[in-house]
Simulated assay, not measured.
Amino acid sequence: MTASPIPGTRPSLGITALGTYAPPRRVTNADFEARIDTNAEWIESRTGIRERRFAAPDEYTSDVGVGAVRDLLARDPDALLEVDAVICATVSPDALMPSTAALIAMQVGLTGAAAFDLSTACSGFVYGLSVAQGLILAGTARRGLVVGAEALSKIVDQDDRNTAILFGDGGGAAVVGPVPQGYGFQHFVLGADGAGGSSLYLRCAAPRLPGGFEMGETVGMNGREVFKFAVRVLGDSGNEVLAKTGLSSADVDWLVPHQANIRIIEAACERVGMPLSKTVVNLGRYGNTSSATVPLALREALDDGRIRDGQQLLLVAFGGGLSWAASTMKWWGGAPSLVARAEREAVGV
């Protein structure tokens, strides 16, 4: 096991535990045929989605987030030790206040930890990883819990063919903390362009955006504009973060993209120079779960053995804002308790 970093040097930080949750209710493409002008084959051919999960009537985003944390704890009961910051990335919070992060923290035994929500839509989980890293490096937190959780079925117009067929519910939870040297996060690229806000939005207090764009009451999307933006920004941000890390696409073992649309993923792969065979795709079973797509895809690839210890990963995502996020990281397959043990052994304790 690699020894602890030399005092005064930047510690290596990464994901030390990861859990996910998807509500049990499956909604297939065929379920939309009786209600809106579409058919199952049309949906799958244009999006790659076959089914998605919907939360129960009395199940909301905090419940989904807690489900992901409980899965994390089932995999590593000690995963939350020393966690003193909780970040929830979501666009479907239970309430604007209290934060969904605080509600999750309360239910998983982290009352008293710093807790706040982060709103960058589908790029939120990768944003959250970067924020957690920053809090730890600043000395504000020892470990962070980053939750990407959504109950999008509650805020999407289920009679709108443009959006209803795309979105599902789900959650992922990751602990960010020390990992052995040479592993963990390498670089992040984050960005946003509010001028594109009218292409993907959800109204809150204001009826219109700056410039006078009138918003509807549910999620609104200009699919053509979002597609063009997504393909460009996923490729550009992925290439930018690879350059910052000193890597090329040939050095990447797995690309883990936001799961929005199979055509977007295919086009983004081409721009980054990654084959689809080295790209984690589980869109067909979950649809677009916004901030939960990256952890859901990452956990699935870990469980089936595709992603292994020491492999080079590239995470890319885009979302409302319009926002984008990318990260390079070298996966470490240990657990927080093993890091603590390595640290003790390094100093002879």
Rank of each mutant, 00 (worst) to 15 (best):
M221I: 11
Y127G: 10
Y127M: 02
I136R: 06
H187L: 00
G212L: 01
A205W: 00
P210Q: 05
R224A: 14
G223M: 04
G168T: 03
G124I: 01
P207S: 13
Q186K: 14
Q181T: 14
R143F: 09
Y183I: 01
A206W: 00
P207Y: 08
V219K: 02
A243D: 14
N222D: 15
Q181Y: 00
A243H: 11
C204S: 15
V131R: 07
A173K: 06
A243I: 00
F125Y: 15
D169W: 01
P210D: 11
E240N: 13
L209T: 07
A141T: 05
E217M: 07
G170Q: 02
L242E: 05
V219F: 13
G144K: 10
L166F: 01
I165M: 02
V146R: 07
A230V: 02
G172T: 05
V233C: 04
A164K: 04
G223T: 05
G148R: 09
G139C: 10
L202N: 03
G235Q: 08
V175Y: 07
Q133G: 14
F167G: 04
G172F: 03
L166T: 05
V219G: 06
G124H: 13
D160A: 05
G139H: 07
K154P: 10
Y127A: 06
G184F: 01
G196R: 09
V146N: 08
K154G: 12
A132Q: 06
N239W: 00
V175E: 08
V146A: 12
V179M: 04
V241W: 11
G182V: 01
T163K: 03
G144V: 07
G191W: 02
F229I: 00
F125K: 13
A149I: 03
G211E: 06
Y183V: 01
R208V: 00
R224Y: 01
H187Q: 14
I165T: 14
A141Y: 13
A206P: 00
G223K: 07
L242R: 08
G238D: 07
Y127I: 00
A192G: 11
L152Q: 07
G223P: 14
D169R: 01
G171Y: 03
G216N: 09
F188E: 03
G223Q: 05
Y201E: 05
M215H: 10
G170F: 02
Q158P: 00
E225L: 10
V175G: 12
V179G: 05
K228L: 13
P207M: 01
V131Y: 10
D193G: 07
L200W: 03
V226H: 11
F185C: 05
G220Q: 06
S153H: 11
V126T: 15
A243K: 15
T163S: 05
A230W: 10
S199P: 00
Y127K: 10
G194I: 02
G220K: 05
L209N: 10
S198N: 08
G171V: 04
E214N: 03
G139D: 04
L242V: 03
G177E: 03
G148V: 03
E225M: 08
C204F: 14
G184C: 06
A141C: 11
V226P: 11
F213M: 01
P207R: 13
G134H: 08
E214Q: 15
R143W: 07
S199K: 08
A164N: 04
N162D: 15
A138E: 05
E217D: 15
